[in-house]
Structures are given as structure tokens and as C-alpha cells.
Simulated scan of single mutants.
Amino acid sequence: METFNEYHLNPEQFPFLKGLQDEWEVIRDEFTIFIQQASPEELKFAYDVLGPKSKTIKTKGDSKYSAFGILFQGLFIEEYIQLHQIQYPDYGTNEASAKALALRNKYFPNLADAIDKVNFGNDNILRNVYFGTFHPGLDIKLHVNYNPHTNRGYLGLIVPKGDIAMKICHEQLYWHEGKFLILDHSYPHCPHNYTNYDRTVLVVDFFKPDKLRDEVIGFEKEQVTQRMQDNPYSLGVFGKSDKAKQEDFIKYGLAHQLEWDKAL
């Protein structure tokens, strides 16, 4: 039986996620069709424009993490681009927004519909929804995601067998196809993919249901404003606060030490 704690949370606590989990095969198929059938221009646009970029989270080698999505800070991507008037090297704001909407309608109608249904019945609780792919050999350095107002869910879509895990505190946690892994990312963590295959999940950030909604909305607004000023291509998902501090390394190391002491 799986055990849960303050950073590894039981998905049954969040029944609204069932609306996405029940559609996981449809969502996986939309992703697969896009990757296989999209034109080079569409693929480039997705990863250049629809993918949140981080300046602080680093990898240990050349292998990379890629991401793109359709919902950011509770808005579909085309609305988010317009709200923040994001300018891209190859696209103006209006062009990028129009292309994003066309791409969403063409390839991800079922995912968009599932998001709409969950948010309609749960006061817009979903904040970010995007595909995240770990490429073979990926090893991300220790970091935190300073988002005390949200939890992060990973819905497994394509998870090959082998050593693909999230190291958080003293544990290694694993993704499984068709199931959610829910984490509080304020704890120091470092994921890896030591296989020869891609791993893709649907990343779903959502407001913590036990927090007052007015408070989390206010915090999100302040955080996103700062993150967009620092890096508009972060789409408000990543920021300078994600960088691990000395106390995070101590916290992470201490968790391992305590577990080793128990074993001894």
C-alpha cells in the first residue's frame, strides 16, 4: 500500500482531479497525435511559445526537459498571452495568441473540455496544465518550486519501465500511467530519467483547497506579476525563488540522514 505524508499527498483528497484522470487515455492520444502529426512549424511554436521557461532550474548534463501547455494561471494560453501582452522574437502578441488558439482547437479539444468541466464545477481551481517530457538521461539539480498556494499533480501519460523517479526528502517516488502523483513542491526535490525513453506526464497545478480562495488568488497575482517582469516566457510558472538555497540542501540532506539513522 502506498504511504502518504506532508509532501506526497493522497490523490483521493482531491476528487476534482478525477475529471482529468478519467480522460487520461484521450489526453495521451491527443499528445501523441500532436507529436507525430504536427508540422515542424507547429512543433516549434508549441515549445517556443506554449512552454513555460525557467532561468533557475538547471540540469546536470546535456539532456533536457521540454514542456508546452494550454492553461496558465487559470487562463487558456491565448488569453494569457493577450493579458500580459507577451512579445516573442518571431511573433507579435496578436499573432501568437491567434496561433495558440488555433493549435489548441486543432489538437487538444478534449483536454480543453476536461479542464473547462473541472474548473466550472470547482471555482477555477486548476491553474496550470501542461505536458512535461523528461528526455533520456535527464537529471535535474536540486531545487524548490516556491508555490505555497498550490500543489502539483502529475498525471502519467507515457511512463516507460526503468529508473524514472522524483527524489524528494529521503524518498524516491514514481510515476504511473493513468494515475496522479501529487506533491507539495515547496520541499527540495530533484527528478531524473535514467532510461533510454521519453517520459511524459500532464502537469496540473491547482489551488490548495484548504487555503482561503481570496488569499491564494492575491498571492498568485503578486507572484505572477514579479515572475513575468523577470521572465515573460516563464508564463508565471517558474521564477527566481525556485533556486535552492543553502537551507534547502541542509533540509534535503538531513532527511536522508534521519532515514539512514533509522535503518542503522
Rank of each mutant, 00 (worst) to 15 (best):
Y7V: 15
N10T: 02
N10W: 00
Q13H: 11
P15H: 00
P15Q: 05
I27S: 00
F34K: 08
E41C: 09
E42F: 15
F45R: 03
L50Y: 01
K53N: 14
S54F: 07
K55I: 12
K55D: 13
S66Y: 06
I77A: 15
E78F: 14
L83N: 08
I86W: 02
T93S: 02
T93N: 03
E95Q: 05
L103R: 11
Y107F: 15
N110L: 10
A112I: 13
A114C: 04
D116Q: 14
G121K: 07
D123K: 09
N128D: 15
V129L: 13
F134V: 00
D139V: 06
I140Y: 00
K141P: 04
N147K: 01
H149G: 06
K161N: 14
K161Y: 11
H170M: 05
L173Y: 02
H176L: 13
I182L: 14
L183I: 15
D184L: 08
H185S: 14
S186D: 05
Y187R: 03
P188G: 02
C190G: 08
P191S: 05
N193E: 01
Y194T: 02
D198R: 05
G218C: 05
M228E: 13
N231A: 13
G236S: 02
G236F: 01
K240G: 12
I250K: 06
I250S: 06
K251G: 06
Y252L: 07
G253L: 06
K262T: 00
